[in-house]
Design a protein around this nucleic acid. Sequence first.
DNA 1: ACGCTGATTTGAGATCTGTCAACCTAGAGA
DNA 2: TCTCTAGGTTGACAGATCTCAAATCAGCGT
Lengths: 122, 122
Amino acid sequence: MSKQAVALTLTDLNADTPCCPPIAQRRIPAESAAVLAPAFKALGDPVRLQLMSMIASAPDGEICVCDLTPAFELSGPTISHHLKTLRDAGLVDSDRRGTWVYYRARPTIMRQLAALLTVEAT
Amino acid sequence: MSKQAVALTLTDLNADTPCCPPIAQRRIPAESAAVLAPAFKALGDPVRLQLMSMIASAPDGEICVCDLTPAFELSGPTISHHLKTLRDAGLVDSDRRGTWVYYRARPTIMRQLAALLTVEAT
DNA sequence: ACGCTGATTTGAGATCTGTCAACCTAGAGA
DNA sequence: TCTCTAGGTTGACAGATCTCAAATCAGCGT
């Protein structure tokens, strides 16, 4: 497939239609793996997984960094770095309002990842 | 290899009942994040994601290392190392039969991870 | 303008990871 | 036993990652 790899990141992961069939259904191509692996990698750290959960489960659909940081025994810069990682992976969006910055999850991409791991019933 | 650490991981992730609600539903506790993050981390490498897909989508439910290695332009030891990572994460099982070693996916754990990323319909 | 607070960026150090060459182990078969 | 092949283990190295302190940036007050 001679698809444009760059567009894949923004287009396919954001699309409503799955980017690929479940990995248990057909072997994933190298190009897709290169696009998808970073998202899993971003979730592959305990702190980021918790951050992602706090963001995705926020009652108002968003949560302030000022509410995230004190939940960990880590410095502000470290939390900021992890949030940037989640942002770069396309898992969250950030939005500054005045002094505060709010993060919200990108449900489409989460669904893409969930769909990838789907397994047929045994 | 430490059988203990693996056994711990498998205990939680191997159950038929979800280990935790979706991360978008409730904030994941630190302990659960510590158990689950390594699984995502293992999928967070393009080579391992492809390996996992080849294993999970194998027609007979299993695939020989001798069929995995030539699919990549990487040395045998490197593939072996990645397979060990997947094994340690509890994502696959290996089984030696004669000269050859076969790998098979652990669907329960894949389902756990998929369930974790589930998002309510908007 | 000034200072204050919240958040990100930069720089640095310790640790972890991906990779390969070299070596070792397990099993099949003569 | 000896040899051959399939995989795994060890050791080493370059590059990535996690973390913090220090510096910087962005807004809101007075």
